[in-house]
Amino acid sequence: MSNQRIRFFFMVMAAFLGLSLQVSAQQFSVHATADTNHIRLGEPVKLQVEVKIPASLKGQYQLSMAVLPDSFEHFEVVERAKLDTLAPTADFSGIFRQTTTLTSFDSGQWNIPPIKYELIKPDQTVDSAFTEPLVIDVNTVAVDTSKAFKPIKSIRGVAWNFMDYIWYFVMGGVAVLLIGFVIWWFFLRKKKAPVVVAPPAPKETPYQVAMRELHTLETDQPWHQDVKAYYTTLTDVLRNYFEQQFKIAALEQTSAELLQNIKPVTILNQQRDKLQAILTVADLAKFAKLQPSPEDHAECLQKAIAIVEWTKPKPVAETAGEKAAPTKSAL
Rank of each mutant, 00 (worst) to 15 (best):
M171W: 14
I166G: 01
G172T: 00
R156F: 06
A175F: 01
L177H: 04
G180S: 11
A159G: 10
G180W: 08
Y165K: 06
A175T: 08
V176A: 08
G157C: 10
D164T: 02
F169I: 09
M163H: 14
A159M: 07
V170C: 00
V176L: 09
V176Y: 01
I166M: 03
N161F: 12
L178I: 07
F162L: 12
F162S: 04
I179D: 14
W160D: 14
F181A: 14
W167V: 08
I155L: 12
G172Q: 01
W167I: 12
M171F: 14
V182P: 01
M163R: 08
K153F: 07
G180L: 11
G157A: 09
I155Y: 09
L177E: 05
S154P: 03
V158H: 12
I183N: 10
S154D: 15
A175Q: 05
V158K: 13
D164S: 00
D164V: 02
G180N: 11
V170Y: 05
R156E: 14
N161I: 11
V158L: 09
D164A: 01
A175Y: 02
G172E: 00
A175I: 04
S154I: 14
I166R: 08
G173T: 05
V174P: 00
Y168G: 10
I183M: 10
W184V: 01
V170I: 04
G180Y: 06
V170W: 05
Y168L: 13
M163K: 13
M171L: 13
K153Q: 15
L178N: 08
W167C: 01
V170K: 03
Y168Q: 11
I166H: 04
F169N: 03
V182G: 12
N161R: 15
N161W: 11
N161A: 11
G173C: 06
F169E: 07
A159D: 08
I166P: 00
V174C: 02
M163P: 03
I179K: 11
I183T: 06
W160C: 07
I166S: 02
Y168F: 07
W167F: 09
W160E: 15
F162A: 07
F162I: 03
F181T: 12
W184Q: 03
V174M: 05
F162Y: 10
Y165P: 01
V176R: 04
